[in-house]
Each structure stands twice: as C-alpha cells, then as structure tokens.
Design a protein around this nucleic acid. Structure first.
Lengths: 168, 168
DNA sequence: TCGATATAGTTCAACTTTCAAGGATGAGTC
DNA sequence: GACTCATCCTTGAAAGTTGAACTATATCGA
C-alpha cells in the first residue's frame, strides 16, 4: 500500500526527462487532434469510432461481442454502449442477439459501414503516413515500436487489477 | 485541394508499420487513461486540468491570459472557458481583468491551487516515472524525444492554418 | 434445486467537450 | 469620428464520457 504517503523526497524529472515528457504530450495530442479532425470532416466520426469500425471489419463475420470490442478498443463497456448506439443510428453497425448467451450482444458492421470504411481508409492512412511514417527513418520506426511496447507492458492491466473493479 | 480525390492506389501501411501504429495507439491510450485515473483519484481532476494548473504555476505571477493558456495547453478557448469555470468553483483558479485590454482575462493560480499542486506533484511524477522513464534506457529516452519532436514538427499549426478558423 | 456470486450489457446523472453564435473591445482606414 | 474587420472570451445546446446503479442471465457449489 506504499505507493504514496511516504515522506521521502520524490525523484523529480531531470531536465532532459522534462523536455521529453513535454515533447511527448505535445506530439501525441497534436496527432490525436489531427486525426480526429480529419476523420470528423471526411467520415463524420471521431477517431475512436472509426477504430471501432476497423475492429469489426477485421473480425470473423464482421461482428464482435460488446465486451470483446470494448477490450480491443480499450474503452469501458458503458462508453461502448453509447458509441454503438450512435453508430447504429448512422446505420453503420447493427446489434444482434447472441444465441448462446442471452445476456450477450454482437455488434455487426453493416454493408453501409463497410462502405464508409472503404471510402475513408485511404485518407486515414495518408494522414497517419504523413504525420508519422513518412517523417521517421526506418530506424526510428523500429525504435518507436520498441518503446511503445515497453510502455504498454508497464501499463497492461494485470491479473491483480482484475480484483479492483474500480479500475474498470 | 488535392489531398483526396485522386484515384491512385494509396500506399497502405507495411506489416511493420501497422504493428508500430497499433503499439502506439495502445500505449498512448493506456498511459493517458492511467494518468487520468491517478489524478482523478488523488487530485480530483483529470490530467488536462492538472496541466492547466502546472502551466499557471510556472508563469510569471502565476497567471496567464486565457488565450496564452489555451495555446500552451493546446485546447480551444471555449474548452478553456468551461475548464477555468470549473477550476474556479474548486477555488484553485481565479479570473482577473486585464487592465491593458478590456477584452482580456487572466487566469491566476490561487494559493489553494498552488497547494493542491504541491500535494499532488510527487504522486504524478511517480506515475510518469513508473510508466515511462523508469522503464526506458537513457538511449531510448533520447530516441523518444527525437521522434516526438519530429512528429510535432509535421503537425505544428502553420501560418496557413491561421486562415482556417475551423481548425480552431 | 437452491442460493450466492459473477458476468453482459444498459441506463441514469453528473461532468466534459465541441460547435456555432454572440457581445465586447481593439486596430486600421478613410 | 465612423466604418470595417480582427481578436478576446463567453455562452448555450448538443454530443460524448464517466462511474455507479441496475436488469437479466449464467455459473458454481452445496
């Protein structure tokens, strides 16, 4: 239980760490904003919603259980419920009952949703390329991949977290 | 006008690029969620609000014009207005008129706000350290800094954007 | 079979963000 | 000064997110 509350002087960030941290916050928010605007403008939905459609498009039979989809998009089930309701209104997703588990729901990508994805994928890829991959050397792309995987490892929900419902 | 609409086959992402892109999305959302929860729990505000207080704490006389603050936090003025209203309710920020420009407002960090920051800085730094800097080699920290700066360069609002109000 | 507990998903209320106006002041030009 | 246009910030409504409460179904063990 000692994550806080000890009186030892914390290890502050070095100057370099501070600069890197600011650069990180700056770059990641710029990119997220950029992609959000690009997709909102061209596809009529924010980046995260687009991500949901992508997940569905890659799933067998273009459908996933709500909980699966929530996990792979790393959002809460609550948020997903709202999001799917909206996408359903757009006609891009449809809910289906799960025969084997009466509590369950599938979210299925409709043909219309598939079409939206097909139309917007090129623009989205172009945006990601232009912002990221076309600006980094192959070396740097590798480095970025490694670094991101290290970060994720440290943040991955562990089994311990499963006992802590308030973490989700 | 030619950002889209040409019929040439887009350059899709290579396998490696796809993996890196997913790792990026995964890691950055995990980290943002983690910091949001940590600060919401300990300080009673989300990460971005905490960032506003930090900016103010580092400004001369612990105050900034609204537009300056919005720029440095990279959020819209509208969003900032709402956010400051909330922080004002908490007693952590106070608005002050600008004598030299009657349209202007300062947001000033109150003593109470300073105290909240003092109390929560150690926990926040620890979270950032634990998630990032303590897991990366010095080499990787440098690489991350370089990569993030390259990204930001490509996304930085240019003079051209100034003509496009819908970009903000 | 019953009861306890866990899981799937939704809903509600509070809060936050976005988008489109809008009111006020400043700056440039005639 | 008066006109026009830009800038500063706020507002209100709609949309999105969060966290907790809730319904329904499933699962496990006695």
């Amino acid at each position: 239980m000692g994550t806080m509350g000890d009186m030892t002087e914390p290890r502050w960030l070095t100057d370099e760490e501070q600069h890197v941290w600011r650069a990180y916050l700056h770059a990641t928010t710029l990119l997220e904003d950029h992609l959000d605007r690009q997709l909102q403008r061209d596809a009529g939905m924010p980046h995260i919603y687009y991500g949901l459609l992508v997940q569905l498009s890659q799933a067998p039979r273009r459908r996933l259980r709500m909980t699966e989809l929530a996990k792979s998009a790393k959002i809460t089930r609550s948020r997903l419920s709202h999001a799917v309701a909206r996408l359903e209104k757009n006609g891009w997703v449809r809910r289906e009952n799960c025969p084997s588990d009466k509590r369950g729901q599938f979210a299925r990508l409709t043909d219309e949703g598939t079409e939206v994805l097909r139309r917007n994928a090129p623009g989205h890829v172009a945006a990601v390329r232009q912002a990221l991959f076309d600006r980094l050397s192959p070396e740097q792309v590798k480095q970025l991949g490694t670094i991101m995987r290290v970060m994720a490892e440290g943040l991955e929900p562990t089994d311990a977290d499963a006992d802590l419902p308030w973490l989700r």
